[in-house]
Design a protein around this nucleic acid. Structure first.
Length: 481
DNA sequence: CGGGTTTGACCTGCGC
DNA sequence: GCGCAGGTCAAACCCG
């Protein structure tokens, strides 16, 4: 799909050639080798070209004249008595008309694409809800059967083997002790994970049954939601991005609460806590890669309990989706040698980044440092099966594969993940924003932003670094280590 | 002066 | 039980 998309892209959007052309066109004082070759390719302001095209009379503007409805072409079009002073203006209008038409076409294409994606997302959402309901029913049956069996065997009279059990125990890969919400010794952290306040949009459900004269209650919220959210709190999402900045700008406000020298990495690891709301449990770790210090590894943990700004929402959705994706497949079969055949090729289960300690919980890595052929990888916790993620390309193109996946929501989540990750990458890359602004300014004849404006989210102290995009390259590849 | 950062101490989990 | 390493706390410090 990427190739298809690229094929439909406008040629000058592929690289900065267009910008340089435009820059050269708008700034005629520019010298240097950079300018001339581009003028050769597309020079809207060339006098020669202008004369040449007018020599051909009727064919002069055929390639550029598109009715934009804006009446951008002046009445002098095609008139041969235009003075030299007006030529630049004339060419500008031609160029602007061309640009407008091109943008219009691109907009229409994007609208069609958007419509198509919406319909696909709707379909996936419907499937997800359906499967979620079925899953809930199955789990409920299992719990009831399990409870009946326990009562039958005369177990569960005391302590932990009590028939009062949480449904989530059947769904969460963690040891039962870590999930026992009734355990008095549960840590504050664990209780916080399960508290309703930290898990909004869920409902409490109580399933009662009579057995052997005792009332058995199965406590829990909507099962799948609870299980996944509990698990999500434990899953981590790591984002690898090439950046010289001390921290990538993800739209949230963070407060540093610690720094440690990690073993095997000369670069210290910084610990941040979300400060957008009191009590927000989200934390992140930032550390440079030992092998390549230009790579910044940011590991997120937890779910926000407050509204997020758009950029942060995108990142949060991405990380949440990635975490859900990971966890939904964490019980899948294990590949022997880490090479797993998938619908889109082979994925390697790479060892966890040597710079980071082996995590207690599964970590999924969004690798923004590589090109489209980046290798996705998951880092399972020790003893956790490796889960292959067919994440290359756009998974929604293969909806028939979803049924084979451990969790139906994966398709939905991955769809959201791809879109949101790209959004996040754009939103969090001030250099890209600056480049776009510069391009527009150049085209419109304005002054491009100064390098000092390049990026840098002053709110979180991330300085802009010209030529060093924070979340570079195009493709978001989900990597799992 | 308030908020953020730094940094050493402390806690906890895990492997031996 | 001990040591190690990761993670967190909190007092000191810095800065606008």
């Amino acid at each position: 799909m990427e190739k298809k998309q690229r094929a439909s892209e406008l040629p000058f959007f592929h690289s900065d050639d267009f910008l340089r052309r435009s820059s050269a066109a708008s700034d005629r004082t520019l010298d240097g080798d950079d300018v001339k070759p581009h003028i050769k390719e597309m020079d809207f302001f060339s006098t020669n070209k202008y004369n040449q095209s007018h020599d051909q009379k009727g064919s002069s503007s055929s390639s550029f004249d598109v009715n934009t409805g804006l009446n951008l072409l002046n009445s002098s079009q095609g008139v041969s008595w235009i003075s030299d002073e007006n030529k630049a203006s004339y060419n500008f209008h031609r160029f602007f008309s061309f640009l407008t038409s091109v943008l219009k076409i691109e907009l229409e294409r994007l609208q069609e694409e958007n419509q198509r994606l919406r319909s696909m997302l709707d379909q996936i959402t419907r499937n997800y809800n359906e499967v979620q309901g079925q899953l809930f029913m199955v789990v409920q049956k299992q719990v009831l059967a399990n409870t009946k069996q326990q009562l039958k065997d005369g177990e569960g009279v005391n302590g932990r083997s009590s028939p009062v059990m949480s449904v989530q125990q059947l769904m969460d890969p963690r040891p039962p002790a870590a999930l026992d919400v009734n355990e008095p010794s549960a840590s504050h952290d664990k209780r916080q994970e399960l508290s309703p306040s930290s898990l909004p949009n869920t409902t409490m459900e109580v399933v009662s049954m009579e057995g052997d004269g005792r009332t058995v209650q199965i406590q829990g919220k909507r099962v799948s939601e609870q299980a996944s959210e509990v698990a999500l709190r434990k899953a981590r999402v790591s984002v690898r991005a090439r950046s010289e900045a001390p921290m990538i700008s993800d739209g949230c406000q963070w407060r540093k609460y610690g720094q440690k020298m990690a073993k095997g990495n000369p670069c210290p690891r910084a610990y941040y806590r979300c400060t957008m709301a009191v009590g927000c449990p989200v934390r992140k770790q930032v550390q440079r890669c030992a092998e390549d210090k230009s790579i910044l590894i940011t590991t997120y943990e937890g779910n926000h309990i407050h509204p997020l700004p758009p950029a942060a929402t995108a990142m949060d959705k991405t990380t949440s989706a990635a975490a859900a994706m990971l966890l939904s497949g964490s019980t899948s079969t294990t590949s022997k040698d880490g090479v797993v055949p998938t619908s889109s090729g082979y994925f390697h289960s790479l060892p966890y980044a040597s710079t980071m300690a082996a995590p207690l919980f599964p970590t999924i890595t969004l690798d923004l440092t590589q090109g489209p052929n980046a290798v996705p990888y998951i880092c399972p916790p020790p003893s956790t099966p490796t889960f292959p993620l067919p994440l290359h390309g756009y998974p929604m193109l293969v909806p028939n594969k979803l049924s084979a996946l451990p969790g139906m929501q994966m398709g939905q989540l991955r769809t959201a993940s791809m879109v949101e990750t790209v959004t996040a990458a754009i939103a969090s890359d001030p250099n890209l924003t600056a480049a776009l602004a510069a391009a527009i300014s150049t085209i419109m004849g304005g002054t491009p932003p100064t390098p000092s404006n390049n990026g840098g989210d002053s709110s979180n102290g991330v300085p802009g670094l010209p030529g060093s995009p924070q979340l570079p390259q195009s493709c978001t590849t989900l990597s799992t280590n």
